[in-house]
Simulated scan of single mutants.
Amino acid sequence: MAFFSRDYEVFLLLAAPGAAPLWDAAQWTPFAASLDGLMAQARGKASVRCHQYNPKGKPIAFGRLGWDDKSHAKWTHTPQTTEARFMSLEAWAPAWTLCEKDGQAPDVFLALANEALLGLAGKPLQFSQRLVCAIATDMGADAAATLQAALAQVAAQQDAVIFARTHRQWGSASPYGGFTDAIQDMLIGGLFRQDDPHARPLDAATFREPWTRIGN
């Protein structure tokens, strides 16, 4: 099986403009705990990379991050966090290096972004955060249900304006070799048809792919 041809259940959550940031420790800690079991089922240890910047715009180095309490504490924000601006985060289970080595896409994937730092400063936002989570269908229906249940709790807490799911492969074959339109690229460049998704209603025509809304 080609790297890109593995099937996934993919979930999308767009948080309300006034929602508490998921990168706050108080929000992230219980959410991460609800996914610990899924991460432990992966064929290798999870790895996390996080992009944050100091007030001067320079990247903040966190060192190697995994899916554990010690790593979460390094990058999540608390009331004492004043010198860090969260931009985005990716979690791969197993780590992307192992996925590349064994030629198989991850068992579980998660990506989170802060809408305010995606080049839309000063514009009114319809949502404040975007979260994409994917789990391989061969992990089983129970695993997908566990992920959906964990995300449903977050959706309720964040008064999500969109909570939806779709079924798709990790990517699509490229005529030039390799693959394109990967799940790992959805968060920043693969969700919306428009460069500015806040300039029009969040209806079916806004999204590049069909999504089925959950709970509404």
Rank of each mutant, 00 (worst) to 15 (best):
L22G: 01
Q27T: 13
Y53S: 04
R64S: 09
F31H: 07
F62N: 13
F31Y: 15
A61H: 03
I60C: 14
D24V: 11
S34H: 01
L35E: 05
A61P: 06
P55M: 07
F62W: 08
S47A: 15
D24S: 12
D36A: 15
K58M: 09
P30L: 11
L12N: 03
A32M: 10
F62Y: 15
Y53F: 15
A32T: 01
K56Y: 03
A33D: 15
G57N: 11
L12M: 10
L14K: 12
W23C: 02
A19M: 07
S47L: 07
K58Q: 15
F31R: 13
A26N: 05
S47Y: 03
R64L: 15
A32G: 11
G18P: 09
R49F: 05
L12H: 05
W23K: 05
P17G: 00
L12A: 04
G44H: 02
Y53V: 11
L12T: 04
F11E: 10
P55V: 03
K45Y: 01
P59K: 05
Q27W: 01
A19R: 12
A26M: 02
L12K: 12
P17N: 10
G44V: 03
R49N: 14
G18V: 09
L22E: 11
R49D: 14
D36M: 11
S47H: 02
L35W: 13
G18R: 03
D36P: 00
K58R: 13
A61C: 07
P21T: 01
M39Q: 13
A20L: 15
A40N: 11
A19E: 03
N54W: 06
A16E: 11
